[in-house]
């Protein structure tokens, strides 16, 4: 099993956090995992992305040159990375912020309004967790139980956020 993921979006959309959470969950499930952030002049409002590889065996290179899963949280991310999506792979698009979808390509497009889902729950910043919900629903790489166990640890400095993020994840899972 090898799962190559790119998560991309505006700075501030929680792209790095989601990438780390997925990596953390994979580690807890005793998988090999690498997390490689884009670490350049990324700023709030600019586009930012990270690459994750999860595998049953040792991972040679952490660089993702083709994706099994692409999570694109805005339009520039769709445009930039859709070309890397492998044939038959899953692509999750935040349709609240990406209106023009690729056609004529052989990937499974999941077009879901993650930002709107999050806004309805009261905090647009939890759109990343809605995307996580959709991801774990469609792809059985990580277990929901594993993620649920991690959230209290991830937000231990701000317990209010545990409930919000769990809700956002559940909503994403329903819509996925």
């Amino acid at each position: 099993m090898i799962e190559r993921i790119i998560i991309s979006g505006f700075g501030g959309q929680g792209v790095m956090f989601l990438g780390k959470l997925i990596s953390w969950a994979a580690m807890r499930e005793n998988k090999f995992v690498t997390f490689l952030p884009a670490y350049g002049a990324e700023v709030r409002g600019g586009t930012s992305h990270c690459s994750i590889i999860i595998s049953d065996r040792e991972i040679a290179s952490p660089c993702v040159e083709q994706t099994d899963t692409l999570i694109a949280m805005n339009q520039p991310s769709v445009d930039k990375f859709i070309g890397l999506a492998a044939k038959g792979s899953e692509v999750f698009i935040n349709s609240s912020m990406a209106k023009s979808l690729p056609d004529n390509i052989s990937v499974k497009i999941n077009s879901i309004p993650f930002s709107d889902i999050a806004s309805k729950l009261g905090n647009i910043k939890s759109a990343n967790m809605a995307a996580l919900g959709a991801y774990i629903g469609r792809k059985k790489v990580l277990s929901k139980e594993g993620i649920l166990k991690l959230l209290p640890e991830a937000f231990k400095n701000n317990p209010k956020l545990i409930q919000l993020n769990t809700q956002a994840m559940e909503e994403g899972l329903k819509n996925g």
Binding site: T34, F35, Y39
Partner: peptide
């Protein structure tokens, strides 16, 4: 290098 410094692994 920067890649090693920034990447995360268990």
């Amino acid at each position: 290098d920067g890649m090693l410094g920034q990447m995360m692994e268990p």
